[in-house]
Amino acid sequence: MTISVYVPAALSLLLAAISRIVVGRIAPTRAVVFVVAAMLCAAASTWGLVLLSATLLGDTSLVAEEASERGVQLQDPVPQLIGVTAAVLLVSGVFRVVRVLRARRATTQELRAVCSSCGTGELAVVALAAPHAFAVPGRPGRILVTRGLLSVLDGDERRVVLAHERAHLQSRHHWLRAATEVSAALNPVLIPVREAVAFLVERSADEHAAAVTGSRKLVAQALAKVALAGGADGDARAWSAALPFAGCGVSARVAALHSDPPRPEPLVPSSVLALGVATAIAAVQATIAFYQLVYWLWPT
């Protein structure tokens, strides 16, 4: 088997490294580039695992008999251990994807249920003291906030939260996040990319809110107030501690809003996209190499 079957894994590592480095500097609207690259890397590396697992079939009696009938000299293209490892990785990846999709669906359903308990209209308010705000995708999408969030903010700051959540809904950020969550489930090497995209969509919604309200400082202030009001949230702390890198949370967003507005840089997005395309090409090459191994199986 050619080296190209391993290339997607290597390029995934590279993509993860790039996303860690540039996430703080890139214009937030570039999130979609990372999403596309992550999907290509995940698809290519998963296909690579399929091909490597398929080499195990050469050891099954069915294929072996067929080969001896046709006088084909069978040789293992990769050590059996690699085939087995690939198969294990493949199966566990599929399990993780199922888990992510289930969690997403259950969470969205529950958010919608809370919204419908809160009456109709765009805004749904829950009488809870903990400060939370969520964009709930759907037709139409809704904004769910707690009373605790509304009461720590003034009128202008409340407008920031509404504009931020509307940006998520209008730009369909939940699809970007879902795509990277599935990619990272298939290929855990891409977890930093998932986190980078999660951060960039928040930044994107922050900048949208700043454009709507006319003040980036106001957005930073609203964000800081909500984050501080939720400081005692033990549950949230438990899972955010599990994120692979710090410095991509609220404080990074506040800091970004206090510095100059982001300028689009053409170099990073195009190189990230090129990386995704290179991964796809490697997958095609690996497929051709695999086909050349087994073409004798097809009836002539």
């Binding site: 259950a106 969470t107 529950e110 809370v114 308990s117 984050a227 400081g231 549950d235 438990a238 949370g249």
Partner: peptide
């Protein structure tokens, strides 16, 4: 009010899989 608050509490106390897909306005500090 009561029902919505209970539903929301339940949602916020789900396990890590579920918290990871929840898109929060502000995470904890």
């Amino acid at each position: 009010e009561e029902l919505a608050a209970e539903q929301m509490q339940a949602l916020l106390s789900r396990g890590r899989d579920r918290q990871a897909v929840l898109q929060r306005f502000a995470t904890s500090l």
